[in-house]
Amino acid sequence: MAEAEVNSYLVLGISLFMLLNSAALTVYAERRIASFIQNRVGPNRVGPFGLFQPLADVVKLLLKEDVTPIHSYRFIHTIAPIIPVVTALMTIAVIPFGEGIYVTDINAGVLYLLAVASLGVYGVTLAGWASNSKYSLLGGLRAAAQMVSYELPLGMALASVVLFVGSLSVVDVAASQEYWWYLFLNPLGAIIFIIAAFAESNRTPFDLVEAEQELVGGFHTEYSSMKFGMFFLAEYMHVVINSMLITTFFFGSYHLPFAGYWLPEMSPLAKAILDVLVFTAKTIFFIFVFIWVRWTIPRFKYNQVMNLGWSKLLPLSILNFFVIAAILFALNAA
């Protein structure tokens, strides 16, 4: 583990600030894009183009009455919304935004990402259980089952990337894509990872966790005011984080395509600015894809979700891992 410097605290502060605000902006983007897709106008009254709508929404959430059901488990009901927010914020620690621009370089960074993601399940599950309501419990159980199932293909897809890098550090993963993005070297892994990332962030077509027609609001049926706001914030932060992870692992992180072949030498400052811009542009693109998919594709049935996860994606990802391992071994031996 690298020693913390002033520089890394600066990166941490800026990235946390950007992440928190990006969640609000993503909510706004989602509503505008949804209305564009559905031929509506969408929020356009508050500020220029309705850009201040998220501020108004937050004020509304803060001013609403905070209701805790009488028969709920009050303590767990209160701490449950904090967990997904914390895990989303923890992820940012190991993501590199440019060459040398990262908070910390953990020697097992990829595993750290998986560890943090696996802790996120608790928030949803406990919220469902502590509310003491049938709909919430069903939503929470669905969430837990879905997230546990899709962690496995996600992990195998990451493992197939690690085979190329030869290191579990996320910084090394990003740096090694200067010439070839892993999208080109490992396309199947990329597809599996993107599908699993959609399922992990509980977005359509995998949003059975809060399927309105069956479960009212799913695990957050009994939540109101800012406690609901925390779940809402966490959902959009997970969209942003997952877009960052897709970018980092398969779409070259902060590198332009095949940058090593044609990009000229630049001064460190210009390179840093370019890196961060490229990373942000890719992240924004994937956030757009997340929203685009949500308003285009209907959701699966629950058995289809489980079937896809266990009997399609998991064997496919294991096969992908073994084929890549065999090819790399043969290449290294030759």
């Binding site: 595993l111 998986l114 560890a115 696996s118 608790y122 259980w129």
Partner: peptide, 26 residues
Amino acid sequence: AQFLAIIQVVIYAGAIMVLFLFVIML
């Protein structure tokens, strides 16, 4: 022991305990 710490979280806290919780809830 970074590796051990992270594995502890992935396997015990992240996977096994979720199953415990699942069984108790069901």
